[in-house]
Design a binder for these strands. Structure first.
Lengths: 195, 195
DNA sequence: GTCTATATTCGGATAGAC
DNA sequence: GTCTATCCGAATATAGAC
């Protein structure tokens, strides 16, 4: 396959996804028309339908792409080894960094109600990244770092505070970058479940 | 004003709101048409526009009504007195009870992205109920029950876990009623911020 | 205040040339 | 693979009788 052909294909595809992310994160899926995406991406509407089938296909591609990316980062944290505490803390740090570096992505992953426009997707909390975070908590329970609670409950209690802060930041309620709150937030989170 | 006239007016209005809540909570605002509401409420579409102006008006009425109701309950908790710890715990218990008793209301208040369809509303976290919960936390900091953190951060850390659990329950990920997790969830939450 | 019928806009999706 | 022009259904909102 000629390189420039592949390049063009990728370019169009990613131009669409980038535009869609921008618009979905800003006004939401339903307030964004395919015509809006087309205009923003500087691509014809025919191309969008050619690549993604329908509007839902754009959202689905974006969703799975972002989740896979996030899951990859979490996987790397796990592979670095260390205690459950260190891994969980690194996960929170990662989410905070992502929120500051890619607020739109975070907005779309965490803040949107996907089931309203991707009816076949399972709830976000049973997606790969969330499962992986739960696994970290399970490991912590096994190793005795975390109190012997139901893993699902413990994960909610551990990550609930940090996730709440991400929501507040995305809503513009918190003025300062999340990193400035990392130490405090992590301290609180860990106290909640530590032995 | 004749009683039956008032009755009818209230009946129509509340029939519409109940139907709208059902549909909004089930499929979301944008997947619900005014015709759907009309059908579900057994009311003419003209009545809906007469009472609420437009579709957004229905959502707004529902939203403010539910928030006021919730805020009223929280206010009563505050008026009962007691330590900040007791009040905050009562707030969590209230939210858990509401989730089980009125899952649709909770879904609509907590889970929906209101800014997508009520563009003029402030974010939910700056609404009256959330403000009131933050005030409870501030009182706890004043009284020395809670560590001297930024009140916004402390509130997020304290209520983040329980709110996360509510989300999980509404998504059908948790099988058991939230009340069964109240003791554990509160214990974790309080450890996060207690002195 | 409530109803039915209707207007109008808009947005998702397709056709078919290049 | 990309483009433009077009179709068509759906959904919001209104008109106007009762």
């Amino acid at each position: 396959m000629p390189a420039n052909l592949a390049r063009n294909r990728i370019d169009t595809r990613s131009k669409v996804l980038e535009a869609a992310l921008h618009l979905f994160a800003g006004g939401g899926y339903f307030n964004t028309s395919v015509h809006d995406i087309q205009r923003e991406a500087q691509v014809s509407i025919g191309s969008i339908y050619h690549h993604f089938g329908d509007k839902e296909g754009v959202a689905r591609a974006l969703y799975t792409e972002l989740l896979e990316q996030t899951d990859g980062e979490l996987k790397r944290i796990n592979e670095r080894g260390g205690s459950a505490q260190e891994r969980c803390r690194a996960a929170v740090a990662l989410l905070f960094e992502m929120t500051e570096a890619e607020p739109k992505s975070m907005q779309f992953i965490l803040h949107a109600q996907h089931r309203e426009f991707l009816p076949n997707e399972p709830p976000i909390c049973s997606s790969a990244p969330f499962r992986r975070m739960r696994e970290m908590v399970e490991a912590g329970i096994q190793s005795g770092e975390i109190r012997p609670l139901d893993a699902m409950i413990a994960a909610a209690c551990l990550f609930g505070g940090p996730i709440r802060l991400i929501h507040l930041r995305l809503d513009g309620v918190l003025a300062a970058p999340l990193q400035e709150h990392l130490e405090t937030a992590w301290d609180c989170a860990w106290r909640a479940v530590a032995v």
